[in-house]
Design a protein around this nucleic acid. Structure first.
Lengths: 157, 157
DNA sequence: CCCATTTGGTTTCGTTTTGCAACTGATTGG
DNA sequence: CCAATCAGTTGCAAAACGAAACCAAATGGG
């Protein structure tokens, strides 16, 4: 199985689009939930399995993929001890992604009055909504921004 | 086809977690890229097909799902005219998610000097990185926040 | 108005991915 | 030492996906 290169750029998506690159890594049904649970304290195989409900063979595969791509590591422990998973810096850096997914869900995926979990800071205060801003401080939307594609062939200046 | 309830809560993920709810809607290989392209001006079936490279039958299915869940609509046009797709308010509200995915990709999914597209505002200025902040203005990470789960049974106060 | 082309799908079929359950061999805890 | 737990594997069935062929309704040039 997996006869050719394991985890390289799939190439079936625009190779210059950072959204596509990220989606290639975490854009499946489980990876983001695994990251979410890691951020919420999950460390062991069974932690992840129980919290997500993912099938165990798929969990194995996903954990390996996330480790291979440097979002998770297994921390060192004395000989023959089990090695818990932990987020790398790159993994932790997905925090803004998880937060925006959460905030969208809170706004659009629950009925009014339906109970859901809330992300709070050290003081127990709800984390404020994340909103793209121009340098000037004015809010940005998809209508007031655009994607500038790289000139082909340009790599360094 | 589609013999039973079309698009309801899958229930195989924590029903009180907004991240899970959102992932249930857009947590597959294509939906986020479709949303991305819609934000970048894609309107027609072939727009989406050409930009993403998705198989046409799957595209049909995804567009229907996104419409069913209220992220896309087909705008009205005079009798028997083709109805282009457009983002709803809920769909546009995924903008912060797309932006954080993009920014993570820019930071971690490209080699130094490798060309990629950039999101800019009306002035052509790059959109600043999105970072969760406490109300006080101090930056937040997964280490300085926690998820408060709802007390079971509580629906309204 | 006519016909060729394009658009927006649908159908069929083969491949891949996912899920489930049973199983295994280390690890741990009492 | 022994039972339970952990971290996976393995085998198989079900679901999702992809490629290509097909089709009817729009479009558009002459």
């Amino acid at each position: 199985m997996a006869r050719d290169a394991e985890g390289q750029s799939p190439a079936w998506t625009d190779p210059t689009c950072p959204v596509a690159r990220t989606a290639d890594l975490v854009g499946d049904r489980w990876s983001l939930l695994i990251i979410r649970d890691a951020m919420d304290g999950a460390r062991s195989f069974t932690d992840f399995q129980q919290r997500t409900g993912i099938a165990r063979n798929i969990l194995t595969e996903r954990l390996r993929k996330l480790v291979a791509h440097g979002l998770l590591t297994q921390v060192d422990a004395p000989s023959g001890r089990r090695r818990p998973y932990a987020l790398t810096e790159a993994g932790k850096d997905l925090f803004p992604v998880i937060v925006t997914l959460r905030q969208w869900g809170e706004r659009h995926a629950f009925e009014a009055g339906e109970a859901h979990s809330v992300l709070v800071d050290d003081n127990g205060t709800r984390v404020p909504d994340l909103l793209p801003m121009a340098t000037s401080g004015s809010p940005l939307t998809s209508d007031t921004t655009s994607v500038r594609r790289p000139e082909s062939g340009a790599t360094l200046t």
